[in-house]
Simulated assay, not measured.
Amino acid sequence: MRVNVRVAVVDDQILVRAGLAALLRAAPGIDVVGEAGSGEEAIRLATTQRPDVMPVDVRMPGMSGITATERILTTCGEDAPKVIILTTFALDEYVYNALRVGASGFLLKDTPPERLIAAVQTVASGDILLASVAIRRLIEAYDSPAVQVPPPSLAGLTPRETEVVRLVGRALSNGQIAETLQVSEATVKTHLNRLMAKLGLCSRAQVVVLAYDCGLVRPGMR
């Protein structure tokens, strides 16, 4: 029997929050288990209701959505929900910082309803969700000399795990990586889970950022 995706919606604007919640409640396969209007409420909701996915507004009074995301992921640990950052503004620092703290996706608030629903299902299954604007902004940021990021160490990874980091950074799916490496998707998932555990990462999006940080992927690289 298929289990519905448990979702909690976070936005400081009550009309926006209610609209998102109503939209998701009407979608098959999704249960809305709560709503929050601030970062502090979002953390409490994440720990008490244990949702699978949380769409979180990036700009809220007090604690920002990015800070709330980091706190949620740290507090909930292995049981942490997948966070989709929602914003009206496609700004470089939002994209980069959201991915760095572990958000699983990034969507603009003018995204059509059907794409929001698909986004929830996508991140619930463990895949990364990056709108085309997010990928473009990330690449533009790394193409700028203003971005100076000390490369993290990959010394603890095996050569195959390092290769998986590179391929994830190129936005390949597990199926595409499996085809490239001529292994099964299950093997790819095993490599990905192990390297994320070694590096203390909690989302596939963080692996993308890591690939750029380490120079395994650069703008324009194929």
Rank of each mutant, 00 (worst) to 15 (best):
D11C: 11
L99H: 10
G77H: 08
V149S: 12
L23S: 13
V208A: 01
C76M: 07
D110A: 06
L157Y: 07
Q182Y: 09
S104L: 00
G105K: 10
A22T: 13
I135R: 15
T47V: 08
V3F: 02
L20I: 15
D79S: 14
I66C: 03
P51Q: 08
G62M: 12
V133G: 01
S144Q: 05
M221Q: 12
P150H: 09
I139F: 10
G102T: 06
L216R: 10
A124T: 11
T111M: 12
V32P: 00
A118I: 06
I72M: 08
A22V: 01
C202Y: 09
D12V: 03
M196R: 13
A26D: 11
G34H: 05
A134D: 14
T87R: 11
E163C: 06
Q182N: 13
D57T: 05
A46Y: 00
K109M: 07
L199T: 03
A80G: 04
E41F: 02
Y212P: 03
I177Q: 11
V7G: 04
R194P: 00
Y212G: 02
I117W: 10
E114D: 14
V101C: 07
K82F: 00
G105L: 01
L172G: 05
A18S: 13
A124K: 12
R100V: 08
A211H: 05
M196F: 02
V188W: 12
G34Y: 02
D110P: 01
L91P: 00
A134G: 15
V53M: 03
L192S: 09
T111I: 15
E140C: 07
T122W: 11
K189R: 15
V183H: 04
E161C: 09
K109A: 10
T162P: 04
P81Q: 10
R115I: 08
A26H: 09
P51Y: 04
L129R: 14
R218K: 14
K82P: 03
D12A: 02
N97I: 01
Q121P: 01
F106D: 03
A205P: 01
E35V: 15
